[in-house]
C-alpha cells in the first residue's frame, strides 16, 4: 500500500515546516489529491492517522481536497474532464488523453499553533 509511504512523505514535509516556520502543533492538514493521482483517499486518511502518532501533527484533522481530472486530446486538442486514463476524446474519439490537471498530490496548507 503505497499510501503509507506517501503519508510518511507528507509528514516529513510537515515536520520540516515545523522547524523552518517555528510551530509546535498542527491542528489541521489540507492535502490536495487529484482524482487521477494513484492515491485512494480513504487509504491515505487511514495511513495518515497512523503515521502522525507522537509527532508534531499528532491528533491533527486531515482534510483531503479532491481535484477533478482534466485531459487534453493528443490528436485534436479538445479539453475535457476525465475520470480515467483510458477515456476517449468526446470530440474525435481517439484515446490517449494527456493529463493537464488532477494528478497532483500536495500538502497545501496547515493550521498550526
Amino acid at each position: 500500500m503505497h499510501e503509507m509511504s506517501l503519508a510518511e512523505s507528507a509528514l516529513q514535509i510537515i515536520e520540516d515546516a515545523a522547524i523552518n516556520q517555528g510551530f509546535t502543533r498542527v491542528r489541521t492538514v489540507w492535502l490536495e489529491i487529484g482524482k487521477l493521482s494513484c492515491v485512494e483517499k480513504d487509504a491515505m486518511s487511514f495511513c495518515f492517522d497512523a503515521v502522525i502518532k507522537d509527532t508534531v501533527a499528532d491528533g491533527a484533522r486531515l482534510e483531503i481536497l479532491e481535484t477533478a481530472g482534466q485531459g487534453r486530446c493528443a490528436r485534436c486538442g479538445h479539453e475535457m474532464q476525465i475520470n480515467t486514463l483510458y477515456e476517449a476524446c468526446l470530440q474525435c474519439g481517439s484515446y490517449g488523453m494527456q493529463v493537464v490537471a488532477g494528478d497532483a498530490m500536495r500538502v497545501k496548507e496547515l493550521e498550526v499553533e
Partner: peptide, 23 residues
C-alpha cells in the same frame, strides 16, 4: 497565509503547496 483564523485564536495558517513526491 500567516494570518490567524479567528480573533483571539492562537492558530495560524501556513501555506506550503508542496508536492508529496518531491523528495
Amino acid at each position: 497565509a500567516g494570518t490567524p483564523l479567528k480573533d483571539n485564536d492562537a492558530t495560524r495558517i501556513v501555506r506550503l503547496e508542496q508536492d508529496i513526491l518531491a523528495k
